Amino acid sequence: MEPIRTLDGLVELVKGRKTMTLAVANGQDPHTIEAVYRGVKEGLVKAKMVGDRERIEELSREKGVDASVFEIIDVKEPNEAGRIARDLVREGEAQVLMKGLISTDVYMRLILDKEKGLLPKGRILSHIAVMETPSYPKLLFVSDVAVIPKPDLKQKIAITNYAIEVAHKFGIENPKVAILAATEKVSDKMEATIDAAIIAKMAERKQIKGAIVDGPLALDVAVSREACEIKSLKS
């Protein structure tokens, strides 16, 4: 598999695979409706919109969206809509859960519920953003910028492994991983630099596999050869 270097390339890859079903938790949000409609029309997903049917259909008309492409499950109460959407994934009727117009706190509690949630036992819930920018020649994977505000070392190791796994799914056999901190120097006064050095050493000793890992690194040297040269840094 050739590495995917653009988001358009990702779309083309998904089009060639089995179509998954998306369950949207409280889908009466115009931006959500537009995004899901585009995914359905491009053949990327099938969609189950859980929420207020009347409101979903009204917003769809306002946006010029044909709501008949969705399966709408009429649920008036937002939290209940979230629960039903989650259960669709638990029961195998959908493969992907998407957040609609529902409180983030409620949404996360539904996912993390110990009895009925979606997180496998012993795993850590994380977040990965995949970004494409004209000023950089390839995709950037950034994690975690949404779920764990201050990860400890164990969580950082899990985040690193998740990011490597996602990069492999994009056809990147040996991704370069920068463990970020405010400085490239290890300091006992900055826990982030110590954690980064530990993770880099773990990768060197094959405790973390499938990637080239270095850290601590500031963001500028992680993405810019010129910044490395200015700082006389070899990575």
Rank of each mutant, 00 (worst) to 15 (best):
I128H: 00
Q95N: 11
K114C: 05
L125V: 15
I84C: 09
T133R: 11
A94L: 05
A129W: 05
M108H: 04
E80Y: 08
V96T: 04
K114S: 14
R86I: 01
G82V: 03
A129H: 14
L139S: 05
K121M: 07
K121H: 10
V96M: 09
V106T: 12
L112V: 05
E93Q: 15
E91I: 03
R86E: 05
G117A: 10
A85K: 03
V130L: 14
G82Y: 00
A81Q: 01
E91H: 09
A85C: 14
L110Y: 04
L88Q: 05
L119N: 05
H127G: 13
S103I: 00
I84W: 02
V89M: 02
A129D: 15
S135R: 08
S126N: 07
L110A: 03
L139D: 04
E91T: 11
R86F: 09
R90H: 08
A81P: 00
I124Q: 01
L97C: 08
G82I: 01
H127S: 14
S135I: 13
L125G: 02
M131S: 14
R90T: 10
A129L: 15
F141T: 07
K116M: 10
P78D: 07
V96N: 03
S126V: 10
G92M: 04
R86S: 03
R123T: 14
D87S: 12
S103Q: 12
T133E: 09
V96P: 00
G117S: 11
I124K: 07
I124F: 04
G117I: 03
I111W: 02
M131P: 05
N79C: 06
L112C: 10
L88P: 01
A81K: 00
G92E: 08
E132G: 08
L140Q: 13
R86L: 12
T133A: 14
D105P: 03
R123V: 08
M108T: 13
Y136W: 14
K121N: 08
A81W: 00
T133P: 08
T104W: 08
S103D: 15
I128F: 00
A85P: 01
L112Y: 06
I111L: 07
H127Y: 15
R83N: 11
S103E: 14
L110H: 02
A94Q: 03
G82M: 04
K138P: 02
S103T: 01
M131N: 14
E80D: 13
P137M: 09
E91G: 09
